[in-house]
Design a protein around this nucleic acid. Structure first.
Length: 427
RNA sequence: GCGAGCGUAGCCAAGUGGUUAAGGCAGUGGAUUGUGGUUCCACCACUCGGGGGUUCGAGUCCCCUCGUUCGCCCCA
């Protein structure tokens, strides 16, 4: 096709859908603000080396999914594939951690990954994420998880499943990795080709393979939970205890492995059964080594990210898009009336009402039809007669009751109007 | 990067080699003068994603290409 269109894996969020986005953002913002999280906005592109060092060169995200290119100064830059690396970079660069205490941050924005689009996956997608930097306390893990479940619950999402695991610290993982390779090697020929490949490079990832035969073999593989050292063990137990205390349902899944190298100890995912194959809507965990790895001090952190497209896919299955309310729709005919209508709209908006002005100048019948479709609660009518008398007809769309009111009176009877609007909205 | 399906108007969609490409939604105009969600009428694709081929003849068959969807990989 020669026409200009949105690039593969990108899409427009049209007005009919935007209500979901605004709703999610407002719920999240209000909850996060109440938990003393502060919003941070970082650039959408960064030096490529930030992601290579932060996410890990062996990961698929870095190895084959990054939007990387040279700018005009021959610098290698990359459109951010996730949010954490940039936030941590910013924290270090501005010394936020030196301002004392724990940094509680949240962000939302577009992320980019060069992959084949499919259900719940796009090249440009959006995440909402939080990072708690500067605390190794298991309460930080628990806090971050409650906030995630709280946001999802407030949005009306039920039947989500929280999976919890610990991937231990670097040493624990080393030991476990060896044990896993020892276990899997005899079965090598029976594994699916992808997993055979990963046996040498990234054996942990074999654990969540979707291949049935591989899954059967993996069923009896050693569990990472048996390889956690004392401190990892204790941390994990505390997190579980705290979640139970909070009344949060979770399911241990020792085969849960996350794709980014920086995770340590706690790892979790929130999944939905209604999303097809991309079931994870929220993924996160602890990343105690990342800040140091990016050149900052050795401070611990936990966080998560929610995939907003996936979240909104679920919301769309549950309810129709929230629509903006419209108080008044103004129709008019005739030069004087049309001019007055514009002014009336302006004055009513200043009085706090939402007002749409019909610009068509077509027959009243047509304008009424549009008023109806607009969903406005009240319709204001200005014709030659009203223009002459400086009045306006106010018609309540539901009851069809109509009365003439002086334009000046209308604007000053704010409370009365508000009261009537509320009555009609309540029904 | 690999595999499979699909591509007809803004949207949904019939059509499976043969005269003028159904229908629905939306939209626009009208059913006598300024009152809506119902009804009725009219208009709304020289063209079937693009290119090439087979054929007397192609939206319908073949090839290429682009796009899209679902899946694998991976992840939010």
């Amino acid at each position: 096709m020669g026409e200009i269109q949105a690039l593969r894996g990108t899409r427009d969020i049209l007005p009919e859908e935007i209500g979901y986005w605004q709703w999610v953002e407002s719920v999240a913002r209000s909850l996060l603000t109440k938990a003393a999280y502060q919003e941070i906005r970082t650039p959408i592109f960064e030096m490529t080396s930030l992601f290579e060092r932060g996410i890990g060169e062996a990961t698929d995200v870095v190895g084959k999914e990054m939007y990387t290119f040279l700018d005009r100064g021959d610098r290698s830059i990359t459109l951010r594939p996730e949010g954490t690396a940039g936030v941590v970079r910013s924290l270090i660069e501005h010394g936020l951690h030196t301002q004392g205490g724990v940094q509680r941050l949240w962000y939302t924005g577009a992320m980019f990954r060069y992959e084949r689009p499919q259900a719940g996956r796009q090249r440009q997608f959006h995440q909402l994420g939080v990072e708690v930097i500067g605390s190794a306390d298991s309460r930080a893990d628990a806090e971050v998880i409650v906030i995630a479940t709280d946001i999802l619950q407030r949005l009306g999402l039920k039947s989500l499943q929280l999976y919890l695991n610990s991937v231990g610290n670097v040493e624990d993982r080393q030991h476990y990795r060896q044990a896993l390779v020892d276990y899997l090697t005899p079965y090598k020929d029976e594994l699916d080709p992808d997993s055979q490949d990963r046996l040498g490079r990234n054996p942990l990832r074999i654990l969540d393979s979707k291949d049935e035969r591989t899954q059967r073999i993996v069923t009896n593989a050693p569990s990472i939970l048996n390889y956690l050292g004392p401190s990892s063990q204790r941390h994990f137990e505390q997190v579980q205890q705290l979640l139970s205390d909070l009344g949060i349902d979770y399911q241990l899944n020792p085969r849960l492995v996350r794709g980014l190298d920086y995770y340590t100890n706690t790892a979790f995912e929130i999944q939905s059964g209604d999303l097809g194959t991309q079931a994870t809507i929220c993924g996160g965990g602890r990343y105690d080594g990342l800040v140091a790895q990016l050149g900052g001090p050795d401070i611990p952190a936990v966080g998560w990210a929610i995939g907003l497209e996936r979240l909104i896919l679920l919301l769309q299955q549950l309810q129709s898009a929230p629509k903006p309310e419209l108080d008044f729709y103004i129709i008019s005919r005739g030069d004087a009336a049309q001019a007055q209508a514009l002014r009336l709209a302006y004055r009513l908006r200043h009085a706090g009402f939402s007002v749409e002005l019909d610009l068509s100048g077509s027959a009243f019948k047509k304008q009424f039809a549009r008023a109806d479709r607009s969903g406005a609660i009240g319709c204001l009518i200005l014709g030659d007669e009203e223009a002459e008398n400086q009045t306006v007809q106010l018609k309540w769309m539901v009851s069809k009751a109509q009365q003439a009111i002086a334009q000046d009176d209308l604007v000053s009877m704010t409370n009365d109007l508000r009261h009537q609007l509320d009555n009609f909205t309540a029904r």
